[in-house]
Amino acid sequence: MALLTDEERELDPYLTLGIAPDAAEKDIRKAYRKLSLKCHPDKNSGPEAAEMFHSISLALAILTSPEKRSFVDGKLATARAQAARRAEMDSKRKAKVDDLLRREEDAKRARKDAADQRKAAAAEEAVRSEGRRLMEERKKRMEAAAAAAREADAPKPTIQQRDGPPPISDEDLTITLTLPVGYTQATLEAALSKYGAVEAVHVVPSKKKPKAIVQFALGNWGGCWACVHDGAGIGAKVKWAAGKEPAWVAWAAQQKERGEGNEQGRTFKSAPDFGDVQDRQRQREEDAALESATLLRMRQRERERLAEEIRRAEEEV
């Protein structure tokens, strides 16, 4: 025969009487008398009062019976232990989920930073590669022209000014520009038109600040000097393609102080085909996409592993 009835099992006698689990019997009876004054049928005829009186009577019967009280105490202790374990599991599960979300955010930021760095490096490499190619082609053309001049017993064309400038090569007249946002090949060509003859121009598009490489025509040192010193007239950041200032720049500054300059005509030649550069850029983008997909699969496996750990931990409760 069961020690408690079904109705008694559903009742928490301590909560019903409003007392602590370690209350003495005199405190139990005192709490019962106090509540019975409010809900005894002789004093309160309402249906809720009758139900409450029945409940406190059951609670008194349980707590004044040593066997029943011991059984209830054990049952409540087990319930409290289970509740504590569930709370601990909830806390651990929340900590794991928070950690996973944090790591995913860190990985997302790392992927974005890596992609931005790859794009910036690719743009820089495109500018440098195109500059090298332009200079090599220019060098070949100059060598061919020199050979033809020698065959015709004609003097090799050189850059000469009345004050005797230092030797100026095509590399000495090549610069790189970091352009303001929004500048394109066409707008840059228009901005450069005031500086005289330009051998080649190439703009590397970008969502941020595009970059460009500009090679001035041999002999147009004045236009090159002016473009460098006023940021191409558009606030561009200018660097020498060779990495350092050519020797002729100091000489050109002296010519400007004397009021002398380059009277080169204003001509322009379009930049050559950059198909090879585009192919290399497309390959870099494909490599970046493969790396991103691999990282995504790794994060998916990590989420699945953590979910399995949480499921096993809940089954152990």
Rank of each mutant, 00 (worst) to 15 (best):
L4M: 12
T5H: 04
E7V: 15
E7P: 00
Y14V: 03
T16S: 15
A24M: 11
D27E: 15
R29W: 12
H54W: 02
L58G: 03
A59L: 01
I62C: 04
P66A: 04
F71C: 02
D73T: 13
E88H: 11
E88C: 03
S91M: 01
L101W: 00
E105H: 08
R109Q: 14
A110Y: 00
A122K: 10
R132T: 04
A146F: 09
D153A: 13
P157F: 08
P167V: 05
T174P: 14
I175K: 06
T178Y: 00
V181D: 07
V181S: 10
Q185R: 08
E189L: 06
E189D: 14
L192G: 04
A197K: 06
E199R: 11
V203I: 08
K207V: 11
K211V: 03
W221I: 01
G222N: 05
H229W: 08
H229E: 05
G233F: 10
G233W: 13
W240T: 02
A241L: 04
W248E: 04
Q254R: 11
Q255W: 03
E257I: 06
R258V: 00
G259R: 09
G265I: 02
K269Y: 11
G275A: 15
D279H: 12
R282D: 15
E285M: 13
L290Q: 03
A293P: 00
T294H: 11
L296N: 11
R305W: 02
R305L: 06
E309H: 02
E314W: 07
E316H: 04
